[in-house]
Design a protein around this nucleic acid. Structure first.
Length: 112
DNA sequence: CTAATGACGTAGA
DNA sequence: ATCTACGCCATTA
């Protein structure tokens, strides 16, 4: 069903810890849909209503928050939330992915 | 089922 | 380093 994709994406985003960020491509890949970075963004577009979903920790491979979508002020809110968690943004508007990128682990294996 | 769209990504200028 | 063009995938019309 169409929710399968979104569900997989959400499951990965939920795993992203505070102070860390992940790219759409990485999330999609960890979710089991490699190359579906674009579709990943489409999925997160409706994810804003999710309460416990750290959607703001997902940014593009450029290290910048993505424009458009949700609302005109959404990007600013996202950046502010990340700053709150300790993610520093440069003057160019991008953060240091080398340092803040989350090392995701593939789900599917029970870690218990 | 086919066509158009979009919170992306990589390569080239 | 910045900007543009093409390709990718899932969703929606």
């Amino acid at each position: 069903m169409s929710l399968a994709f979104r569900d997989a994406i959400y499951r990965v985003v939920y795993q992203v810890p505070a102070g860390r960020v992940a790219t759409y491509g990485q999330v999609a890949e960890l979710a089991g849909y490699p190359g579906a970075a674009r579709a990943c963004g489409t999925a997160l577009r409706d994810a804003t209503r999710q309460p416990e979903l750290p959607w703001h920790r997902v940014i593009n491979a450029s290290g910048k928050v993505s424009p458009g979508g949700g609302g005109v002020g959404r990007p600013l809110v996202q950046r502010r939330l990340l700053e709150e968690e300790g993610v520093h943004f440069r003057a160019s508007g991008r953060c240091d992915l080398k340092r803040y990128r989350w090392k995701g682990q593939v789900i599917g294996l029970d870690e218990s």
